[in-house]
């Protein structure tokens, strides 16, 4: 039993990291009052940018390539989210439509560009993060085996961002204002907060983090950009955001839950004690639980109240 747990937990953390950071991106956007259904597309351009940067510079930049590639994925994700921000904040467009447009645009443009630039829609990279054991900490009994062996460094980066985000959103003036724009933009406006600016910032952070998530997918477990990169991780992140009640540590919990559930489902085929359970139960388990949770908690709906509505000053 312990063997199984100690092999599943580290692997699921590798899968959880990008999911968590994308969901956190969704959190910034929705907390500022903009629904961001375009997370999948933003993740995709981030993944594409990281892959393209890496194959271009993997020979000349050496070991630093992988970190710069993550930075590039973050920037490109942010740039694409600018469209979403412009459409939904400046133009008061329907946020769901705009997000959907991002998803469709991203899939098409990245595959096209990959083909145009490299001659194939599959871009395989040759520099990437490798799972390693953390010195000293990995020797701690139990905890060391679970959380400090065979991890990608990016997992800790993601965790650091989550903790920082909790602090930023709950303990700073900026966080309070951002959340106010998502709950009641009219009051925020009346108190002198620039709602449009806060919402732009929320969407841009969301694009940056979703792009980073895509970069992490490519630079850790996938190592290849292709059509398969668009496998619904961005939508799963939306589910994690809702299940995690729009709170940083809530989505940490829900992402880890999804990550472990998916890993158990994936690995059940080679774990003797799980082989008898039909795969369909394990594969659908996280989604069934999410649906149940949504039904049970629907009364105490906790989403930002003004999310999804364009801010209209005249309604004040």
């Amino acid at each position: 039993m312990w063997d199984i747990i100690s092999s599943i937990v580290p692997l699921s953390l590798a899968y959880t990291a990008p999911l968590l950071i994308i969901a956190l991106g969704g959190l910034y956007s929705e907390r500022s009052g903009i629904v961001n259904i375009g997370l999948e597309g933003l993740m995709g351009v981030g993944a594409f940018a990281a892959a393209m940067f890496t194959i271009t510079f993997q020979g000349s930049l050496g070991g630093a390539t992988i970190w710069i590639a993550l930075l590039v994925s973050l920037i490109v994700g942010m740039l694409l989210s600018l469209f979403h921000a412009f459409a939904s904040v400046s133009m008061n467009a329907n946020q769901v439509i705009s997000g959907t447009a991002i998803n469709m645009f991203s899939t098409a443009i990245t595959i096209y560009m990959a083909r145009w630039l490299t001659g194939s829609s599959n871009v395989q990279i040759k520099r990437f993060f490798i799972k390693t054991d953390v010195p000293i900490l990995s020797d701690i009994p139990i905890i060391g085996d679970l959380f400090f062996t065979k991890v990608y460094t990016t997992t800790y980066v993601v965790l650091a961002i989550v903790i920082f985000s909790w602090f930023l959103l709950n303990k700073t003036r900026f966080g309070l204002r951002l959340r106010a724009c998502g709950e009641n933009p009219h009051s925020a406006d009346s108190m002198g907060v620039n709602v449009s600016r806060m919402r732009y910032i929320g969407v841009l952070i969301s694009g940056a983090l979703a792009g980073l998530g895509g970069g992490i997918v490519i630079m850790t477990y996938a190592k290849e950009f292709s059509q398969l990169t668009y496998n619904g991780l961005g939508f799963l992140a939306l589910a994690a955001l809702i299940f995690g009640k729009w709170k940083p540590f809530g989505i940490l919990g829900s992402s880890v839950f999804f990550g472990i559930a998916m890993t158990v489902a994936n690995m059940s085929v080679i774990i003797p004690s799980l082989q008898n359970i039909p795969n369909i139960f394990l594969n659908t388990f996280p989604y069934v639980v999410t649906l149940l949770a949504l039904v049970l908690f629907s009364n105490s709906s906790i989403g930002p109240k003004a999310a999804g509505e364009p801010y209209d000053v005249s309604k004040r």
Partner: peptide, 25 residues
């Protein structure tokens, strides 16, 4: 030792996890 069908052709993360489990054995 292990002879399995993953059930799809597109689960990249699953492929890595299964391979990791196999190599560990």
């Amino acid at each position: 030792v292990d002879y399995i069908y993953e059930g799809s052709f597109n689960n990249v993360a699953g492929g890595q996890q299964i391979a990791s489990g196999m190599y560990d054995k």
